[in-house]
Nucleic acid binder design. Sequence first.
RNA 1: GGGCGCUUAGCUCAGCUGGUUAGAGCGCAGCCUUCACACGGCUGAGGUCGUGGGUUCGAGUCCCGCAGCGCCCACCA
Length: 847
Amino acid sequence: MSNTQTGSPGVPEKPSLDGLEERWASTWEHDGTYRFDPSATRAEVFSIDTPPPTVSGSLHMGSVFGYVQTDAIARYRRMRGWKLFYPMGWDDNGLPTERRVQTYFGVTCDPSLPYDPDFALPNEPGKDDIPVSRPNFIELCERLTAEDEQAFEELWRHIGLSVDWQRTYATIGDHARRTSQRMFLRNLARGEAYSSEAPTMWDVDYQTAVAQAEMEDKELPGAYHRLRFDDIEIETTRPELVAACVALVAHPDDERYADRFGMTVHTPLFGVEVPVLPHRLAEPDKGTGIAMICTFGDVTDIIWWRELNLPTRSIILRNGRIAETPPPGVPDGEAWRAIAGRTVKQAQRAMVEMLAASGEMDGDPRPITHAVKFYERGDRPLEIVTSRQWFIRNGGRDEDLRRRLLERATELDWHPTYMKVRYDDWVNGLNGDWLVSRQRFFGVPFPIWYPLGPEGEPDHDSPLVPDEGRLPVDPTTDAPEGYTEEQRGKPGGFVGDPDVMDTWATSSVTPQIVCGWKEDPDLFAATFPMDLRPQGPEIIRTWLFATLLRSHLEHDVVPWKHTTINGWILDPDRKKMSKSKGNVVTPMSLLEEFGSDAVRYWACNGRPGTDTALDTGVMKIGRRLAIKMLNASKFALGRLGEEAAPGLDAVHDALDVALLAELAKLVEGATAAHEGFDYARALELTEGFFWSFCDDYVELVKTRAYGEGSGEGAESARATLAIALSALQRLFAPFLPFVAEEVWSWWQEGSVHTAPWPTVAEVGPHAGAEPTVLDVAAEVLGAVRRVKTEHKRSMRARVATLTVTAPRAILLDVDAAVGDIVDAAGVDNFVTEEGEALSVAVELEED
RNA sequence: GGGCGCUUAGCUCAGCUGGUUAGAGCGCAGCCUUCACACGGCUGAGGUCGUGGGUUCGAGUCCCGCAGCGCCCACCA
């Protein structure tokens, strides 16, 4: 900085927060303040695995909250001397983007089409969607998301994230696709990934398989129907599945059915003979204690079907309708015709009518409310259909792997620690391997082809894989090695795997993407395993777990040292904050209203892991704090004069020593808090010190420091002010980076954000001093103020006589600061008396 | 059904390993045009720390039960 040309401190006449964001953001970018040093070694680096925000729509305050907290951590570490590796990604891969692109451009993805390098959108949107190949579709996705990503980056810069903006990535970009496919191929080669034809949860609207992590329960009204299978009555909420029934099951110890095990009964309406079987998962106190097993009504059905080796009678198609033709063994009679081709709901109605008419339903359906599984974005309950899918082993079916993944998580430092329970709960609750294939278009394709037999039938057991050097590939438009495009779909040729990976299958390799795994060995060695994974609590089961899993499988290591789990933003509408009159609270509007530092102050007040209300009141306080920084710095620096402030050697006065002792405690406390990732505590401590510094210390010494007098007293005060100010500006820098940089620039070289973090050693031998002089002086000053206020007098009113009564020890402290007290309080005649407790008598002069 | 977190002044929240009269800010009331700051300063009034027990010389702070709120997990016939 060269704003000190005149030799005097560059303190502006009227300091202001206006425009600080633009000015300093561009200076930081220009100077490369936050650029990663590629020559850094692992021991010097602090690397952060930043969550890539979803690029659809706009960022909301919840994101701002978490990212700012992480930035405060990053800034602290940088000042402590770490070389920060702090990249930023954009999650533009997945269903939300896919849907936006479809409607925005009026296209649909048809993976069977070849890539058209000359594809151009028509000028006028047509009536029907234009079918495009998957590579063309991805190009459109990238085109649309590029704009959003720019807007996101601007917002992040505006709020002062100290990210290295030369290191950004997109989860749909070549680099991320390559990394994701490479990792998958390695999982495949080691047998950790496999494909299998199996019943899986299926969304009938999106027509894709869904993983356990993407499901959520919804409470729905339903009804118990009591149905008769010969003389045995069962209860079911899904009478439409009677045609899919393959057995009845009761608990092995249930005496009511003990003599029926091994025998058969007939299904109502269809008369299909099904066995009665024992299984430990049947619960005697549910319904009549005996359940109908269908292929497939719920997850338990799958377990029973698998463990009891039952036949398959699937009746629900992928579009959510009942099949036209009945499954094997089910007669194509009147009952079947009544449900064939119907939706699940229609079929249920028809079944209930028929069952009531035939007398095979006992009584009316009894309405209940029960939890039903949904895809988290879906509108209708998930069905279970059988299809070929890709899986990655995650411990869901393997006790040993599960145990090792639980152990891995103990190698990670969780902040706060109790969040780890969510991980443990999740891993312990896994009921199957991770289903990673999706029957969608926009995403990372599986780098897999299948050879076709003489009849054109695909051989799923001998997939063709590309050389890693070819990645990324799209098997719907690229041909496997040894084949030509002409052989696609021909007998003896090949066919590409049509599916794409689950979005988490790519997100789970963010450490490998950013650290340059297999592409930049030096970078990888310097940054991986990473130091910090910050993220939200709701994605512990997805992002955190999946990332840990893949690092475990590939590198046999936990991917980070620490994880910080941020809290949740409480919607102010749910609280009774008045409904804003049509004003949508976007991050930018709040940033413009209060300033970035103020919004950051609010975010940094949220304790790690603690839910926090969106509270503009807190932002106001942050703004006030930032303004106070400007004014206090201006005051302290503006009077330091032409020459540089005196140094530590000049500090003699007891009051000054006391302040530095207090400062040492602050530095110690704030540093310890930061080390424990408790940025909020560090901020609280710093803020508390700062206000009493302004209100008491500065008031007490202003006459001595800047008055007519000079000499040792003045030197001591000026030295103390300079030392404290320098430390405070740095202590605030992680939280209020703009105003801190501004005030720092008035008198220091370089950026405050690369300045060394304050240390106790900076206050020298005063660190251990007793700070009581300051406390006593502040108390006496406060007492005088109280009297002036009570008498409705100005703070400038003179005090004719000030009498301080106190025990001897305290009087010594008073004496040590008497000059400052007299000046600050405006005292003409000062008297001390020895007494029991500290008391102050004030005699004001007449007006 | 299991688990985690929260419950402290009207509001938003601090209170670390238990220790003298429980803290901050906002809001509220009053005062001060003060020479860094009216986008301000000073002063003040507000709390039986959700509830019932227990441990202890002493509990907001530890233990047990209960309730309310929020979240996570669960094979939900």
